[in-house]
Nucleic acid binder design. Structure first.
Lengths: 187, 187
DNA sequence: CCGCCTTTTGCAACTAGTTGCAAAAGACGG
DNA sequence: CCGTCTTTTGCAACTAGTTGCAAAAGGCGG
């Protein structure tokens, strides 16, 4: 269970309100640990109750964002503990692969357009990652922090590259397939 | 939500009892849609209640497996419907990437051994996939069913290849890093 | 046949994540 | 200052997945 740790990381990078966190999750940490605003608000409440974060007192709440949170020492310690601990990778769960397996039994009707759609989605994501790389990681900089964040981005880029290549391969395979088996098969 | 469809697919490939399904999930469909035996039993109950599957009457329940299920026409139709329908890919959720991001803030202590461990796990999985490919997909065969299943296996192989390469890259990067930042940093 | 062991099946409670909706509070026109 | 609109925060109910445990049933030695 990692949502609280995702939030702690985001808050250490920059103290934020629930809404700001939600927005940042949509374009940064959320790329590899997504969360809805309701998850975030609930978790912020829990983290505050546990004494890992607190409401930033400095800003007067007169206007703009309401409650900005910052991480307390106990929160930083918990994040460090979690980061250092060993965790098993969670097993893959991918519906498209399952659908292809099902298609081997009930026929491939309707899948091809969705393969194309997924290809477009992954191409778009890949382009977005590349743009971030171009913008945030120019050749010169290599502080430890930059290197680590770049490494994570690299994983995203390579993963999307894998998907686009595999989907293209799948679509090529489809053009070689005979008619739709199973869909009008026996039984 | 895809577990019922994973089960329908597995049952169409071969009618089975709950325990047999559990075992097959551990080494085949479970590679890309994992499930525990409790999930499977619960889902079998639901599917039977909905009239999508039924207990195989032929075998007398005297000994060996208890209740083997088979898919009814309504179940096959539901699976075909689901397979043809469009689904969004679910967002990535990977704790290791999150940990590296956290490490950029709280320090990299303790991560490197787990990177090595993950590398080993992914290497093992890759070897297993390659063995399955060698055994089940020799060059000659190319029925539509084989091609589709091979395509799915290819995704697994390429995905594990990506992870092993990325983890090796990450470990190489680590050897170039200076001491542990953040763990004794400011604040 | 009885008690114990293993296999198979399953319930119940819990944790995680999603969806729908709505209250609190500032923004703004009248 | 009042009503209405938007932004921000949040509750509650629901769906999905996990964990712990235990009952039913056959296997088997005595």
């Amino acid at each position: 269970m990692s949502l609280p740790h995702a939030i702690l990381t985001a808050l250490l990078e920059k103290p934020s309100s629930g809404l700001e966190l939600t927005r940042r999750f949509d374009r940064s940490i959320g790329y590899f640990w997504s969360a809805t605003h309701q998850q975030i608000y609930r978790e912020l409440g829990k983290l505050e109750a546990e004494g890992l974060i607190r409401v930033l007192p400095s800003e007067q709440p007169a206007r703009g964002q309401k409650k900005a949170y910052e991480v307390l020492p106990a929160g930083r310690a918990e994040l460090a503990r979690w980061t250092a601990a060993s965790h098993d990778p969670r097993p893959l769960r991918d519906a498209m692969l399952l659908r292809l397996r099902a298609a081997a039994v009930v026929g491939t009707d309707g899948i091809e357009p969705d393969l194309r759609r997924h290809l477009e989605l992954h191409e778009r994501q890949l382009a977005e990652y590349r743009e971030i790389e171009r913008r945030d990681f120019p050749p010169g900089r290599d502080s430890t922090e930059d290197r680590l964040r770049h490494l994570v981005l690299r994983a995203g880029i390579d993963l999307e590259t894998f998907w686009t290549e595999w989907l293209r391969h799948a679509l090529a395979e489809f053009t070689e397939l005979p008619g739709q088996p199973g869909s009008a098969g026996p039984g």
